[in-house]
């Protein structure tokens, strides 16, 4: 693939879902491109459709308008080339051990032989530092450890994109910081492509190299920014995003 050819191309995507009484538009004509090894962050306040947008990339929701192409192929249904890491702790199969959880994904989705799947699972479990717990069942693990297993499972599949939906939101602040650092060091090792959903500006700047800022009700692209690394730039960018989010939010809040 050409280096500048986008890995994921989302163009003019409108997403709607039905409640019992209404049809709600979650995002309106959103478009962006992701390159290989991007750490692409979807950032916005609650109700901006960022999670819905990611679920659509995951193949769980079909857009009513526009299209999404992964490596030029239209996304129509869920598949192991886009592994999801959810916010919920119950995303691991409780009847399988840590090792089996990772290996089962490989066997079920990639039709990998048992031996090979076990080897690769062991490698990725070690990578997230859980070798000691590889024979434990999920209910014996802490929240942070469960999320690590989910990340190991996602990475072991070596998907085109790893889709992470606020994976650290349910963790305590200390664990969250540690997990962010770990995710970045894992990225340094394998340079996987990740789409990361968050509502925390600080987390977006820390995790991402590119940030898509969405405005709420319905979600539209407000800005697409490069992230910052030096402390001054980070502070500046954070202030900038803050202003963009709240100058928009203030009049809307008055309507509501």
């Amino acid at each position: 693939m050409d280096r500048d050819e986008p890995l994921l191309k989302v163009s003019g995507v409108t997403l709607q879902y039905k409640t019992t009484s209404h049809i709600v538009t979650a995002t309106y004509r959103v478009g962006f491109e992701m390159l290989k090894s991007d750490r692409f962050v979807l950032l916005g306040p609650s109700g901006c459709g960022k999670s819905t947008l990611q679920k659509a990339v995951g193949g769980y929701i079909t857009p009513t308008e526009g299209e999404m192409r992964l490596k030029g192929k239209l996304i129509t249904k869920p598949g192991p080339d886009r592994m999801m890491v959810f916010q919920e702790f119950d995303q691991l199969l409780p009847w399988k051990t840590v090792q089996q959880n990772v290996a089962f994904a490989l066997e079920a989705a990639k039709k990998m032989p048992k031996r090979e799947a076990a080897d690769r699972a062991g490698h990725y479990v070690e990578m997230v530092g859980l070798s000691k717990f590889s024979n434990s069942y999920p209910h014996m693990l802490s929240g942070g450890m469960k999320q690590r297993v989910a990340i190991a499972r996602g990475m072991a599949m070596e998907p085109d994109i790893l889709l992470m939906d606020e994976p650290f939101a349910a963790l305590d602040a200390l664990t969250r910081r540690k997990m962010q650092d770990e995710l970045l060091s894992l990225w340094d090792k394998t340079r996987f492509t990740v789409m990361f959903v968050t509502h925390s500006i600080a987390e977006a700047i820390k995790i991402g190299n590119r940030i898509l800022l969405l405005s709420p009700h319905p979600g539209r692209v407000q800005a697409e920014l490069n992230s910052a690394t030096t402390p001054e730039d980070v502070a500046h960018l954070e202030r900038q995003i803050h202003e963009m989010l709240f100058s928009e939010a203030a009049p809307e809040a008055a309507h509501a």
Binding site: E88, P94, A105
Partner: peptide, 29 residues
């Protein structure tokens, strides 16, 4: 069976009888 687990199963590309045998039955055990 939790929505997340069902989504995980579909993420693996499981469907039909395989989905029932490998996800639903153990989850509802």
């Amino acid at each position: 069976v939790s929505k997340t687990l069902k989504m995980v199963g579909r993420n693996y590309g499981l469907g039909g009888p395989a989905f029932i045998m490998k996800i639903l039955i153990p989850a509802a055990f």
